[in-house]
Amino acid sequence: MIVILFRVLIVLALALLIYTWIQYYRNPQRKLQIAKAEGTYYFLDEPGNSKKNLQFVYKGCLFEGEKYVGTTEDSFEVVNIHITAKDPLELSGLRRDDLYFLEEEILIRYPHAKIEWKHPINQLLLSSLN
C-alpha cells in the first residue's frame, strides 16, 4: 500500500513540475525580456482588456503605453494611448523612423487611437529635421 501511495505522489510531483515548466515557458513577460535582450520587436497586449497597459520592446528599449477608452461615432474604443520609455537611457540609437514604425504597429491594433509620446521621446518628434 505504501509503495502505491509513493508512486502516486511521484506521478503528481512530475505532473506539477511539467505544469510549472510549461507555465514558465509560455509566460509573456519572459518573452518580453528575451526580446529586449536580443534587441528584437515584441508587442505584449491584451486587446480585450482596456485597463491593462500595453508593453512593447523595440531595439532593446522597453516601452509602456497607457490606454484610455473613449467614444467614437458608434462605439467605445481605445482613443488615446500615452507611451513612455521605462528607461530613457535605452533610447539611444532610436531614430524618428523607428517611432513612426511603432506608431503604425499600434494603429494597426487600435485604429481610433491618438498616440502621445511622453518626455523625452516627444522631443525627438518635435525637433526639426536637420
Results as ranks from 00 to 15, higher is better:
Asp45Ala: 13
Leu89Glu: 08
Gly70Leu: 07
Tyr24Leu: 15
Asn80Thr: 04
Pro47Cys: 11
Glu90Gln: 14
Glu73Ser: 10
Ala35Trp: 00
Tyr42Thr: 05
Gly48Trp: 05
Asn49Thr: 13
Asn27Met: 08
Gly48Glu: 11
Pro28Lys: 03
Ala35Met: 03
Asn49Met: 14
Asn80Pro: 03
Tyr42Pro: 02
Ala37Trp: 04
Asp87Cys: 05
Lys36Met: 12
Gly70Gln: 08
Ser75Asn: 07
Pro28Ala: 02
Gly65Cys: 07
Leu91Val: 08
Cys61Glu: 01
Lys51Val: 09
Tyr25Cys: 12
Tyr58Cys: 03
Asp45Gly: 04
Pro88Ile: 09
Arg30Asp: 01
Phe56Lys: 00
Gln29Gly: 08
Leu54Thr: 03
Leu54Asp: 01
His82Arg: 08
Gln55Ser: 15
Gly39Asn: 15
Ser50Phe: 15
Lys51Cys: 05
Tyr24Val: 08
Glu46Asp: 13
Glu73Pro: 03
Ser92Cys: 05
Asp45Thr: 13
Cys61Tyr: 00
Gly39Ile: 14
Ser75His: 09
Tyr42His: 15
Glu38Gly: 14
Val79Arg: 02
Phe43Glu: 04
Tyr68Ile: 08
Arg26Phe: 14
Pro47Asn: 11
Gln55Tyr: 11
Arg30Cys: 02
Arg30Tyr: 01
Phe63Pro: 00
Val79Pro: 05
Gly48Tyr: 02
Asn49Ala: 10
Cys61Met: 07
Lys36Gly: 04
Ile81Val: 15
Gly48Leu: 06
Glu38Pro: 07
Lys51Glu: 12
Tyr41Ile: 11
Tyr41Met: 13
Gly65Phe: 01
Asp74Gln: 10
Gly60Met: 09
Gln33His: 10
Val57Lys: 01
Tyr68Trp: 10
Pro88Phe: 03
Tyr24Phe: 14
Ser92Pro: 02
Arg30Ser: 06
Leu89Ile: 15
Pro88Cys: 12
His82Pro: 01
Gln55Pro: 05
Thr72Tyr: 03
Tyr25Ile: 11
Ser92Ala: 15
Gly39Glu: 13
Gly39Arg: 09
Asp74Asn: 10
